[in-house]
């Protein structure tokens, strides 16, 4: 299982960093939860996220909005995803926690550590493919520079 989670994370990071955002919703099951929050909100049990999607459709809408509607300066991410810790199983669901670091590269060449944190995942086998039923992105910091367009 560990190897499958590692492969999923590697594919996930490459899809985002290679600007294949259209592939990103495919890492999730149809009914899912994707949320970006901060460690502080998470610890306090505050539920809101800067992105909050509870269906795959909402993930696809996020990508469509980024492609067609939202205005932001050209930028890319480089994800460095650490090794997952498998923290439990409940029936068909595997729970994993994985650290990440995202460097943001702006069009003028400036590079910043944009976010660090951990993915709190619930993973299921979905017709032979491992998919995310839940990915809560818990950023270590609650401060976001300028804006968050591309998903983490």
């Amino acid at each position: 299982m560990l190897e499958r989670v590692v492969r999923l994370n590697a594919d996930y990071a490459r899809a985002i960093d290679d600007d294949r955002l259209e592939d990103w919703p495919g890492f999730f099951t149809e009914k899912c939860l994707y949320k970006i929050t901060s460690a502080d909100n998470h610890r306090r049990g505050l539920e809101a996220g800067v992105i909050y999607a509870d269906t795959n459709g909402m993930l696809r809408d996020r990508v469509a909005a980024l492609r067609e509607a939202n205005v932001y300066e050209r930028q890319t991410y480089r994800h460095l995803v650490g090794l997952p810790a498998l923290v439990g199983t409940q029936g068909e669901v595997t729970r994993a926690e994985t650290p990440f670091l995202v460097v943001r590269i702006m069009r003028d060449g400036s590079m910043d550590i944009f976010a660090t944190g951990r993915y709190l995942d619930a993973l299921v086998d979905d017709g032979g493919a491992l998919r995310l039923r839940e990915r809560v992105v818990v950023c270590d910091s609650g401060r976001f520079d300028t804006l968050l367009a591309i998903p983490l």
């Binding site: 929050t37 901060s38 502080d40 909100n41 505050l46 539920e47 809101a48 996220g49 800067v50 609650g142 401060r143 976001f144 520079d145 300028t146 804006l147």
Partner: peptide
């Protein structure tokens, strides 16, 4: 309160 975020 549902959540807090800071935007620089």
């Amino acid at each position: 309160v549902l959540g807090r975020f800071t935007q620089g």
